[in-house]
Computed example of a mutant assay.
Amino acid sequence: MTVTAPPELNTVRDWLRYAVSRMRAADVAFGQGFVDAYDEAAYLVLHTLHLPLDRLEPFLDAHLSGAECRAIAQVLDRRVTDREPAAYITGEAWLGPLRFKVDSRVIIPRSHIFELMQDGFEPWLDDMAEGPGHVLDLCTGSACLAIAAAHYFPEAQVDAVDLSAGALEVAALNVADHGLADRVELLHGDLFAPLKGRRYGLILSNPPYVTDDAMAALPDEFQREPAMALAAGADGMDIVRRIVADARTHLNPGGLLLVEVGHNQAETEQALPDLPLVWLDTPSASAPVFLLRAEDLG
């Protein structure tokens, strides 16, 4: 369908203002890479115009061609009217400086574990003088955490597991794009099932943890993501329980397990009452990730 661009919008500044206004008026949902209308509007406008994503100011008063205006109008219609997430429109998402290909086969990368990784998980890995050695990323999706681990721990080998064959197809594209085929191995299977005999210094997981009630209330944008990457039963702990139950078999002595559970601290503590969970804060959230040592798992 052809989308008509308002004729009075001529510059990047005009379109940025218009995009913010449309998003706010339509009450679109954020949280899939962007936290507000301005940042997401700037990204969509710059990406559509093939301009540098970190240099808005020099282009604000540039006059746009009719074709450029129509292209932005079409993107905004997909975002506002169709409620398509920005990352699926552009085919990319970012964690810090790392770019990943994405489409509707994978959840859009966003992770509190990544925030912690930028400091090398200090002080928790301080006892590993040579790093974690072998890292596992469970429920890898686009392989964003696996690839990030390979970047932040350059001596590590990384395994990445997902149950979705479609997600692993996207993950393979990202592993190739980052030149990590020799260090990141993708495995298809249900959690630890394809990992018999393998052990790790560090296991990471951003698993499904959305409760049934929360799934029913998700905004349209989040309903576009694969349900299997989000839904985790009545209390959101279906996958977390299984990860914790089997992790000890795959951790080296002194190894660490880090699991992201978002706002589900209370549900996690209720589901795992006998474990000494260590809750980790990030710059953007309070206690979205818990840590367990191998020895804590019995």
Rank of each mutant, 00 (worst) to 15 (best):
Q265N: 04
V20L: 04
A37V: 03
V35K: 09
R55H: 09
A42R: 15
D159N: 13
P109G: 04
F30C: 10
I107M: 14
A167R: 10
D182Y: 01
L291P: 04
V278Q: 13
D27E: 13
P123K: 06
A165P: 00
D212P: 02
T81V: 11
A287Q: 15
G197N: 11
W94N: 00
A67D: 14
E57G: 00
E115Y: 05
V135G: 07
A42M: 11
R79V: 05
F30Y: 15
R110E: 01
W124Y: 15
T90Y: 04
H178N: 06
R70Y: 00
V210R: 02
L272S: 04
F153Y: 14
M237T: 14
L125W: 10
A26K: 11
M117R: 06
P276S: 06
F34T: 06
G166L: 01
D190E: 14
R78H: 12
H112N: 15
L56E: 08
A171L: 01
F121I: 08
D235K: 08
G179E: 09
S286L: 04
D281E: 07
F59D: 08
D177N: 06
V261Q: 11
R198N: 01
G189Y: 10
L53Y: 12
V259N: 05
E295M: 11
D281P: 10
Q118S: 05
G131F: 11
V75T: 12
L16R: 15
A231F: 00
L64T: 04
D126K: 13
L257N: 07
R242L: 15
D182M: 06
L218R: 02
R55W: 02
A287W: 01
L49F: 10
L251D: 07
A234G: 00
H50I: 03
P97S: 09
L218S: 08
H188S: 08
W94S: 01
L202R: 01
D14F: 10
A37I: 02
P6F: 09
R22H: 04
D177Y: 03
Y43W: 13
E155K: 14
G233V: 03
A62K: 12
Q270P: 00
V259M: 07
H188Y: 09
A234E: 13
G31H: 06
D137V: 11
G166W: 00
E92V: 15
L98C: 00
D238S: 08
G33H: 12
D246R: 09
G131H: 10
C139D: 08
Y152E: 11
P58T: 07
E295H: 05
A149P: 08
W15Y: 06
E225H: 00
L251Q: 07
V170A: 09
A266S: 08
R241F: 02
L136K: 05
G262R: 12
Y209G: 03
R17E: 11
T81D: 06
H263F: 07
L187F: 00
V80P: 07
L186P: 11
E68A: 15
K196L: 10
F222K: 02
Y38H: 10
I89C: 10
V158F: 14
I203P: 05
W15V: 08
L280D: 02
D177T: 13
E221G: 10
V3I: 15
H178L: 11
V20R: 12
S164I: 03
R110D: 02
N206T: 12
Y38E: 12
M228H: 06
E267R: 12
